[in-house]
Design a protein around this nucleic acid. Structure first.
Lengths: 220, 220
DNA sequence: GCATTTTTTTAGCTTTGTCTAAAAATAATA
DNA sequence: TATTATTTTTAGACAAAGCTAAAAAAATGC
């Protein structure tokens, strides 16, 4: 597996994430995701096409090739292992790990990553509950139920948060909603779709639909 | 402390090392050290001068400013902490850590480095015995005696190896000469200045002057 | 189905960091 | 000291990765 530039890796990773819930990624979408201009995306797609990492025809959108997917999973593996390291070993808060891992993920030395994996005890999920691909790029995603769709009075355990921003993670921490937290939905308000949540024997509290859409639970 | 590019950091670090044993660093020397061309060095020196990191007048050589020294010590701190981490935690051999640390040293997040330092237990030397600057950039260098100058039958403990190449480090490992190893010089041969070394109760063996010049000991 | 809007691409420019070739300054030597 | 050799700098070019403005293609709306 050859080496790619930081910029190439960021493009590959962003396409990987975007193509999960759509069959083709557009120039504008990717430009928005990477906070860059559409013209720059076109240039990069041409380059990644010659490197056989994306399938691309002009005006037709794009997707990663098999090889592109492999590269993406490797980057994601590095990112999530570093996140786990920062959180478990260096005691970073879960809302601080993402930005640091964004830099560390580009240190592409496979021996380093495999030894880090071993040192960490082969963790299966990162601090946000996202699965960590193994050295072969295999990833097992647990089936996720979004909190906003959890039926009333059904106990669930938070196992994933889809938003990595410290904005969201700080609110969740403040409400004591962490990975592994067991909770139930006690009430749903039609007016604004907000939810009343109960954790353990604490008093119930209210969260917005928007926040509940970022949290995933496993029903137990 | 602002952020510098990888290339800028590499230039700063190289100047720092070169200026230890000379009062002024020349264009050609730095070009050789960084495996680049003299013309490129001139360009970079102009840039680092405007950033007040080097004192430089054309045709007159250069040195780091106070600020340049601070930046250099910070880079060296990062490098050596990562080396320690790779060696102690990830179980890399001491001849493998340098190259990986060359990349990791450029991740310039102070919180990361300070937390790494704490996690590692504030180590004072890296796997080659080189001192690790603290968060304030303070560095304490132990007085070093070069092995080739150690008097006969005087016990010493290896506390530093000045060559980071795996070539040298592999030979030393093979001869069981590591940081902390206690040894004595039993004989010196005038012809080629080679030395006969004795470690513990093993049989004595011979090493070349060139190798002995890379090893430093503390006399006990 | 044609005009308008939106999206995407192209063309050409900028910056960073490198290079080569030639010119200028300094150092070495006869 | 004059000449030659060496070192350093300048000038100009190139690749990577981004940008703006304009052109081209596709999508939308009446």
């Amino acid at each position: 597996m050859s080496k790619y530039s930081v910029s190439e890796e960021n493009h590959i990773k962003a396409i990987f994430h975007l193509q999960q819930d759509q069959d083709t990624v557009t120039t504008n979408e990717l430009a928005k995701e990477l906070q860059t201009k559409p013209a720059s995306i076109t240039d990069m797609m041409k380059k990644l096409k010659t490197k056989k990492l994306v399938n691309y025809q002009r005006y037709k959108g794009f997707r990663l090739t098999e090889q592109g997917n492999k590269v993406a999973l490797n980057i994601i593996r590095r990112h999530r292992l570093w996140e786990y390291f920062l959180s478990e070993k260096l005691k970073f808060n879960w809302d601080e790990v993402h930005d640091v891992a964004e830099v560390l993920e580009h240190v592409s030395n496979n021996k380093l990553i495999d030894k880090l994996d071993e040192f960490l005890g082969y963790p299966r999920v990162d601090p946000h509950g996202d699965p960590i691909p193994d050295a072969q790029g295999k990833i097992k995603s647990s089936k996720k139920t979004v909190l906003s769709a959890l039926p009333l009075n059904t106990p669930g355990i938070i196992n994933n948060v889809s938003d990595q921003s410290s904005e969201v993670l700080e609110i969740l921490t403040h409400k004591e909603m962490n990975i592994g937290t067991r909770l139930e939905v006690k009430k749903k308000f039609d007016f604004d779709e907000s939810l009343e949540i109960k954790i353990g024997r604490q008093a119930a509290f209210t969260i917005s639909k928007k926040l509940a859409d970022t949290v995933y639970v496993q029903i137990i």
